[in-house]
Amino acid sequence: MDNKRISEIVEEEMIKQDANRYRDMRKILTIPKSIADELDSVFAGVDATDIGYVLDQTGPYGSRAFDDYYFKNKNIIALYLAGKALGVDLVKVGEG
């Protein structure tokens, strides 16, 4: 094998590893469906593309489950709302 082919193989493997890391990272960012539904109803029609605005506006309110979730996951909530506003799935909605 020549050096060019070795470089191509190494590059292909690095791309695969990056894709796997990205896929694994997306698995980590999840939000329960019940919390997503509550956020969707409260922030319907609100421009959430400004992360600072989202962080200022998302606060503990509503159900006890939401309050508990909020204090542990404020950044995931902000990413979920920003992703919805941008039309991309930054946070996966899980069961619950």
Results as ranks from 00 to 15, higher is better:
Ala44Cys: 08
Asn75Lys: 12
Pro60Cys: 05
Tyr53Lys: 14
Val91Gln: 07
Thr58Pro: 08
Ser63Met: 01
Glu11Met: 12
Val46Ser: 04
Lys33Asp: 00
Arg23Tyr: 13
Asp2Tyr: 11
Gly87Phe: 07
Tyr53Arg: 14
Met14Arg: 15
Leu29Gln: 04
Asp24Asn: 15
Ser63Pro: 01
Ala19Glu: 09
Phe71Gln: 06
Gly87Asn: 10
Ile6Asn: 12
Asp89Asn: 03
Lys72Met: 07
Ile15Asn: 14
Ala48Thr: 15
Ser41Ile: 05
Leu39Gly: 10
Ile77Trp: 08
Thr49Asp: 08
Phe43Lys: 03
Val54Leu: 09
Val54Cys: 10
Asp89Gln: 04
Leu81Asn: 11
Val46Phe: 13
Tyr69Cys: 00
Arg23Gly: 10
Arg5Ser: 07
Ser41Val: 05
Thr30Val: 15
Gly87Thr: 08
Leu29Met: 10
Phe66Glu: 03
Met1Val: 12
Ser41His: 04
Leu29Thr: 02
Pro32Glu: 00
Met14Asp: 14
Asn73Met: 02
Ile51Leu: 11
Ser63Phe: 00
Asp67Ala: 05
Glu8Arg: 14
Ile31Ser: 01
Ile31Gly: 02
Glu12Gly: 12
Asp89Met: 03
Asn3Ala: 13
Gly45Asn: 12
Gln17Thr: 15
Glu95Asp: 11
Gly96His: 01
Val91Arg: 11
Val10His: 07
Gly87Ala: 08
Ile15Gly: 08
Lys74Trp: 10
Thr58Ser: 13
Glu12Lys: 14
Pro32Thr: 00
Lys27Gly: 15
Ala44Gly: 07
Gly87Val: 06
